[in-house]
């Protein structure tokens, strides 16, 4: 994989490396580090997308075990992302590769504030297990990890979703994704709650432009 990233990484139409959300080991494991080194070198973010959880050499797709329904798997998409992210933080991947970005695709995002709060709380007591972290875990995530919106959670009160976006600094960390044309696609017009112009610009365009180096004019993108 590392060789492939170096071989193809500078193609003008390649902007990131995508991994399935599950593999044999949690993604912080040193086994994967050569790939991260190559991606950082080629200035490519690494995205994680649900696909392999529960298949082959991977672990069950939920913490409770193998579910019988797709309904259960889809409801818990975010939990596998949590397992990978805490591994990337705790094993020191984000600290060791400070110019490497990760993207969580199709995991939703309302779990992110709770996840960050829990890491920061545990870090106060368990810091000695991860001494290479030079700042609270949440700051590594805020600086190096981006989350896509789909499938967005839909609380009864849209204001509550806006509060969650604010809690996770969406103006820096969130990118809109539609997953069109899948059954669980989100509308770019209706999926997100009303928000400030600044946050909306960042979520709908700016954060992705910055991460992937995209131009303001889409017609200037390479076509082959």
């Amino acid at each position: 994989m590392a060789e492939m990233i170096r071989e193809l990484g500078d193609h003008p139409r390649v902007v990131q490396v995508v991994m399935p959300m599950a593999s044999q080991h949690p993604y912080g494991h040193e086994y994967y580090w050569p790939m991260y080194e190559a991606a950082e070198e080629m200035e490519l973010p690494i995205a994680m997308h649900p696909y392999t959880e529960g298949h082959g050499v991977t672990r069950p797709p939920t913490g409770a075990g193998h579910p019988n329904t797709y309904f259960e798997w889809h409801t818990l998409l975010g939990t596998y992302a949590m397992g990978q992210l805490v591994s990337l933080v705790a094993e020191g991947v984000l600290a060791k590769f400070p110019n490497l970005n990760f993207v969580v695709i199709e995991g939703g995002l309302s779990w992110v504030p709770h996840f960050l709060w829990r890491m920061d709380k545990d870090w106060k007591a368990l810091r000695a297990q991860v001494p290479y972290l030079q700042k609270p875990p949440s700051e590594y995530v805020r600086d190096q990890v981006r989350f896509t919106t789909q499938p967005i959670e839909e609380p009864d009160n849209p204001e509550h979703l806006l509060q969650i976006l604010e809690m996770m600094h969406a103006e820096e960390t969130v990118m809109f994704a539609s997953d069109y044309p899948h059954w669980d696609t989100d509308s770019p017009v209706y999926a997100l709650p009303p928000m400030s112009d600044e946050m909306e610009q960042a979520v709908m365009a700016g954060n992705a432009q910055e991460l992937y180096g995209l131009p303001n004019d889409p017609t200037s993108l390479p076509t082959n």
Partner: peptide
């Protein structure tokens, strides 16, 4: 306590100088 600038090299330091709270483990 432990100290490291790289995940691959963790060192033990300040032995006898760190008080660990018995309740939550803060150092």
């Amino acid at each position: 306590t432990t100290s490291a600038t790289d995940p691959e090299k963790v060192e033990w330091e300040d032995d006898g100088q760190i008080l660990r709270c018995p309740w939550h483990g803060w150092e």
